[in-house]
Design a protein around this nucleic acid. Structure first.
Lengths: 343, 343
DNA sequence: TCTGGTTGCTTAAACGTTTAAGCAACCAGG
DNA sequence: CCTGGTTGCTTAAACGTTTAAGCAACCAGA
């Protein structure tokens, strides 16, 4: 490949210098006093030879690669792949490409991917930070590399971020269960210091407290990201058998899916025997006779805001950081039983 | 940002020329007779200044960007996002980054994304081609830009591709339904000339023919990609009410999910009243009392083979094309009814 | 003492752009 | 006829690498 036509090629054909071609094709002919006649010829030849500017050369000169790095926990997780899609659309519309990498919620891997993409001179990053990557993120700030955190952030780090109000969302979710008459409500989250999980747990506690539920009736289970299937088994078992939970709030889509499997495998009926609320959407919820109430995150908005904030930072090199906190909505429509009938 | 340390910076500190630094850091010190003493000093300073080579400059020189473009129908489709993940891992392990773009099964959009990424000088593409993009793909061949098609290919175009044996997979799927005693078997596919759909339909027909089923009992519905929810409604309705189908074979994951919704909304029980086989995995299948039999594609292998074939083509500029056809497996385990009980 | 090879470095060009600076030719005004 | 501005172009440097070619200093052998 790569016998691609360059400015020089066009210049040779027309019989002018490469600079002139550059001026014309960048619509800077006027300012640089290129005659309309020459300009026309240059444009024609460029068209004819199907000239495509070499972005690499351009990047070297401009120190801008017009690409952004997207680092999420796992691109194959629907939450993140949906996010990726909106980020793609938004980035392309601003003439940026998106390079992606998965961290597997592992701070070492995150650092590796980050370094890998930094060498590629991406102009900035959109990152779902993992636990224990605060130093890495702080370093990024120090190096003045533009970036926006999504989904999670660090309280004691002044960075751009786009998140949702996890505390409020969690309160809404638990309120929903309280309103349905439960007091013995369990929660399953990942074992993590990440702020969004902490806030989801805070929201859970606050909702119970406000409702006057005895703190002894807080049932909180935390499972590890790496082995959550295994640990979910124990968690659900304990919630049901020992804590006598009437309802469970699952803090992510993956947890909800796995948790529901465990509930069913114990032969419990949802919602009659165990009521459930989940965080995040899942295609699976459409198939339950009882539509699983869940917190629906404004994924599209998050992605768009993140790209916008990032590009703004790239362009304006403004020092101030933007903290965008969106509202997530509880989807609790009860599907008509005879319309989405489960087999 | 971008006050990044360059070869020159290191050279200045050590007091040598940039070339020497380049030789040493590329482990070409020996061949170029750099004294071990100087080499050591250079490596130390490089370490100290945390030197990261500028890949852009390197790319300009080498005409290699060490990045590949991945173009799929929609990155948020689980099939493609899972594929993306394996491609990411495989590419990173060969020191390539992945830039992605979605075509929405639209050939105009595909061409746009392709051009967009070509300007970025990606070294090659992995593409799930859309209907009507044959000329675009042929043009890519003509320009000698390395690429590998996945999921689909064009019969009359000699290109690299990694696919599965759709004909065989489809036969397996329909055989499964035949073995369960059905003869009135419907099929739902996208309305498309893409070879993989044609082959899935061929497999369906062949299986029926082999089983001696009257060709009059072939019920084939095709829906448009853009409005499949709407058209699925009609398709399922017709299959059930007019064709009196006893079973339906859905040709993709999205079709299966939507089709199942429609079947349930008509109050039909699966599998007692309508038996079903799907193409591709879905998280939702885990939740049916009756585990939905489906064709499970070797996504990981497809991704890996695609990356390998692509990198081989990039490196060896071999003219010969590789046609890799993998086998997809019918997953038909029946989940124990009391273990995965639906609510 | 000259020759030729080795050692250890530097110089320079190139990749394809962008863009400041320079320069020749022309024209108008005094 | 000189001056100064305008017009239409070219030159050159730069971005950060890579790499061929060159060169000075030294040493060994004849």
């Amino acid at each position: 490949m790569k016998n691609r036509v360059s400015l020089k090629d066009i210049a040779d054909v027309v019989g002018v210098s490469a600079s002139l071609v550059s001026y014309v094709l960048n619509n800077k002919g006027k300012e640089n006093r290129v005659s309309e006649e020459t300009a026309k010829k240059i444009r024609e030849v460029a068209e004819e030879l199907n000239y495509q500017p070499n972005q690499i050369a351009r990047s070297l000169k401009s120190k801008r690669s017009q690409s952004i790095g997207l680092i999420v926990a796992d691109i194959s997780n629907p939450f993140f792949s949906n996010m990726a899609r909106t980020i793609e659309d938004e980035a392309h519309s601003s003439n940026y490409t998106v390079i992606f990498g998965s961290s597997d919620e592992n701070s070492t891997k995150l650092k590796k991917v980050l370094d890998f993409l930094t060498t590629r001179q991406v102009d900035g990053f959109i990152i779902a930070p993992t636990e224990g990557c605060k130093e890495t993120v702080a370093e990024l700030s120090k190096q003045k590399i533009p970036f926006v955190l999504i989904d999670r952030y660090f309280e004691d780090l002044s960075t751009n971020y786009v998140i949702i109000d996890n505390f409020q969302a969690s309160m809404d979710a638990v309120d929903h269960l309280l309103k349905r008459g439960h007091t013995r409500i369990g929660l399953v989250a990942y074992r993590s210091e990440l702020i969004h999980f902490r806030n989801r747990i805070r929201g859970y506690k606050e909702a119970l407290k406000k409702a006057g539920v005895d703190p002894g009736l807080e049932f909180i289970k935390e499972v590890s990201y790496a082995a959550f299937e295994e640990e979910m088994k124990t968690a659900v078992r304990e919630l049901i058998y020992e804590d006598k939970a009437e309802a469970i709030f699952f803090c992510t889509n993956t947890l909800a899916i796995e948790g529901l499997k465990q509930i069913f495998s114990l032969g419990r009926k949802v919602p009659e025997e165990i009521d459930v609320v989940a965080f995040d959407q899942s295609i699976a919820y459409d198939f339950f006779e009882y539509f699983i109430p869940h917190i629906s995150q404004p994924i599209k908005e998050i992605g768009q805001e993140a790209v916008r904030a990032l590009i703004e930072q790239i362009n304006n090199k403004t020092e101030e950081t933007r903290h965008i906190c969106l509202r997530a909505k509880l989807e609790a429509r009860q599907a008509p039983a005879d319309e989405l009938k489960m087999v």
